[in-house]
Amino acid sequence: MGRQRRSATAVERWDFQTAIDMGNALPHLFKPISDLPKLTEPEREALAQCKASVETLKLAFFAAGKALQIIRDARLYRASHSSFEAFVLDEFGMKRAYANKLIRTWRLAEYLIASERLAPNWSQRKLNQGQLWELVEYAEAHSVETAALVYITVYEAEDVSVTAAVLNGAVAAVRKAGGSDPKKIQSAILDYLATLDETTDDDPFSDFSHRIERAVPAKWVHRLGKKDPQAAHRYLDELQRQIDKCRGELPAPARIPSPAAPRLEAGTGSEVPQETTG
């Protein structure tokens, strides 16, 4: 009979779950080990580890909130402390108010991370605690699903960046409209979003460079081109078709008269001064 495999202890299984452990586990790789365009296996592994570390930081508030609620509700602090408040202060230097803020936020974050409405055209990196905090009170008064619908509606809207201020305004619009019907909620939010250009821009048409950057995600196209050049060209071809269609629906631009050429006085070659009016 073969040797029985020893079960890993809890400490061994979670050996690299803290930020410090994860940082210490990263490879000591600070210069290229290959000049080939394609990454080697060790380089791919190093990249995966680095990306996981960065993603862990981006979503740390979600994991921390869930962990804190487990510690609080299961009273896992009781062996060393008489209260949850004393435990988080001693262990993490964290006041109870902030711990509770993380606890109140994590369920909405978890729901959005798993949402099929947002995948595959989004990245979990877009989530941040400050944005979701604007939806927490609404989620507690109604439901996580309804609060998530507010976020998703704003996210899917054209020419709108998801910010804490925009989400706050969307929640206010939904409350003003009343009701819990999803279509009514979405309608109230879209009506609110339609007013943003009018209320936030002094001259929304004077500088549209930011809209161009959002319409043509150059960095994303370049990444796609490295992975699948044909797909990148298909994307740009479709984008061009949409541009041509939109241009065809616009009224013709006004013709701007070209400036008159200066007249020369006969026999002298000197310019004749232009008459002015007024």
Rank of each mutant, 00 (worst) to 15 (best):
F205C: 03
T276C: 08
A25S: 15
A119Y: 06
Y98V: 14
Y155R: 13
A10T: 10
G248W: 05
G65F: 03
A8H: 07
P251V: 07
V54R: 04
M94N: 06
A252Q: 09
T200P: 00
E271N: 11
E265Q: 13
A46I: 00
A218H: 07
T105P: 01
R107E: 12
T268Y: 01
E249K: 13
V136P: 02
G65N: 00
H233R: 15
T56M: 07
T277I: 08
T9S: 15
T277A: 12
D202G: 04
A173L: 11
Y111G: 02
F30H: 15
A215R: 11
A48W: 09
L108H: 03
T56P: 00
A215C: 04
V272E: 10
N128R: 14
I189Q: 01
I71D: 00
H142R: 11
V160S: 07
T277P: 00
D203W: 02
Q242M: 14
R255C: 04
R6G: 03
I113W: 09
T105Q: 13
N128M: 10
E238C: 10
A218Q: 06
A252D: 05
D228Q: 06
R104I: 04
C246K: 14
K38M: 13
F30Q: 13
L132T: 01
G269M: 02
H142F: 05
V154N: 03
E265Y: 08
L36H: 10
G225V: 04
Q240M: 15
R44G: 06
V11C: 09
T105F: 02
E156V: 01
A172L: 15
S187L: 14
C246P: 05
L264G: 01
Q17E: 12
W220L: 12
H28M: 12
R107N: 10
A64L: 12
L102C: 05
G169Q: 11
A231N: 04
N100K: 10
A260P: 10
T56G: 11
E140V: 08
E265H: 12
E55Y: 10
D202T: 03
V272H: 06
Q274G: 07
A188S: 08
A194K: 06
G169L: 09
L236T: 07
R13A: 12
E116D: 14
D237M: 13
E213T: 05
N128L: 06
A97F: 06
G178P: 04
H28E: 14
D73W: 00
R263L: 14
V88E: 01
F16Y: 11
E140W: 05
Y192V: 04
P120M: 00
A63M: 02
A231F: 05
F205N: 07
W122T: 09
A10E: 07
L118I: 05
G178L: 03
Y111L: 14
A52T: 13
G248E: 13
W14Q: 08
S7Y: 03
E156Y: 01
Q242L: 15
L193I: 02
C246G: 13
A261V: 15
E91L: 02
L57C: 10
V216W: 07
L196W: 05
A63I: 05
I113F: 11
R5S: 09
M1G: 06
S7M: 08
D203R: 01
D90M: 03
P217N: 06
E85D: 09
A260F: 02
A165F: 11
L57R: 09
K176T: 07
H81G: 05
L47D: 04
F62M: 04
R13S: 12
L127E: 08
Q49W: 02
Y77M: 02
E110Y: 04
